[in-house]
């Protein structure tokens, strides 16, 4: 087959777009090591903004909250999302035919709508004081769909007869799940967990509405910093967060190479 390679202009255009994607972030990283309070010109190398960051108790508390919320929310979302994924793939019958709508709509709609409707619900119906619990519930709600999509994609490629064979051999539904289904979908489940972990730790919009005044997460803290003043400390926390996300992606790619591809 003759494949003439791509023309030069295509390479140039694509490189320009890659530059557009990376340059702004590169500038954030570079200025995080700049020995100046202004993000304007290069003065000299320093790591002091990282020192400032590590001494910033509010920021550390926010980071702790984010981590706690992300772990708990994504564990619960993984369990519920896996159940939803299995149900959508296995039983598209009766009332359950409406399940994909319920599971996928929160993923597809603008985040602000989920945020304000949950705010309304928590305050008006449950009379809940906004805080950790409301944030956890909100994060679980938007993560379930992502886990379910990944798990369903994983199940969709499988031969149903394996499950029938297990049943014919006398396995109970639980044994079938534990010994057959779960090992097969595990890469998808892990990818789903990592995905909802990342979504949770990154979420700003929905958390913004349901957090109330008592509890801050890392994105909320970053937001209030940016709103007030732009300081190199924001660059430092951004750089650290990028490093963290990159390691998580590397980990996910290593743990579940094909699970991740089933993500969209």
């Amino acid at each position: 087959m003759r494949r003439a390679g791509s023309p030069l202009w295509l390479w140039l255009a694509a490189s320009a777009v890659y530059a557009f994607l990376y340059l702004p972030l590169a500038i954030v990283v570079i200025f995080s090591f700049n020995d100046s309070l202004l993000n304007a010109e290069w003065v000299g190398f320093t790591t002091r903004w990282y020192g400032v960051l590590l001494a910033d108790e509010e920021m550390l508390r926010a980071a702790g909250n984010s981590l706690f919320i992300a772990v708990v929310a994504s564990l619960i979302a993984t369990v519920l999302g896996t159940m939803a994924g299995i149900a959508m793939q296995r039983w598209p019958v009766g009332l359950l035919r409406a399940l994909p709508f319920l599971v996928l709509t929160p993923v597809a709609m603008p985040e602000i709508l989920l945020g304000v409707s949950l705010l309304l619900f928590f305050r008006q119906v449950l009379d809940l004081t906004l805080g950790l619990v409301s944030i956890l519930i909100a994060h679980i709600t938007f993560s379930i769909g992502f886990v379910a999509i990944i798990v369903r994609a994983r199940l969709a490629g499988m031969d149903e007869s394996i499950f029938e064979a297990a049943r014919d051999l006398g396995a109970s539904p639980w044994q079938t799940f534990r010994r057959v289904t779960l090992p097969l979908i595990l890469p998808g489940v892990i990818a789903g967990f990592l995905m909802s972990f990342t979504l949770s730790i990154d979420d700003f919009v929905i958390t913004f509405f349901v957090a109330g005044v008592g509890v801050t997460t890392l994105p909320l803290q970053i937001y209030s910093m940016i709103k007030v003043a732009v300081t190199p400390e924001v660059n430092a926390v951004s750089t650290l967060l990028m490093a963290l996300t990159l390691s998580l992606i590397a980990l996910a790619a290593r743990l579940a190479p094909d699970g991740i591809q089933g993500r969209r």
Binding site: L21, Y22, L23, P24, L25, I27, V28, F31, N39, A40, T198, D202, F204, P219, I222, Y223, I226, V230, V234, N235, S238, L241, M242, T245, L246, I249
Partner: peptide, 21 residues
Amino acid sequence: VILPFASNFLIRVYAWIIVLG
């Protein structure tokens, strides 16, 4: 393409405050 997209949403917005400032 995906990598920069994996950084926090606010950081990507913040980057433009620095770029356009």
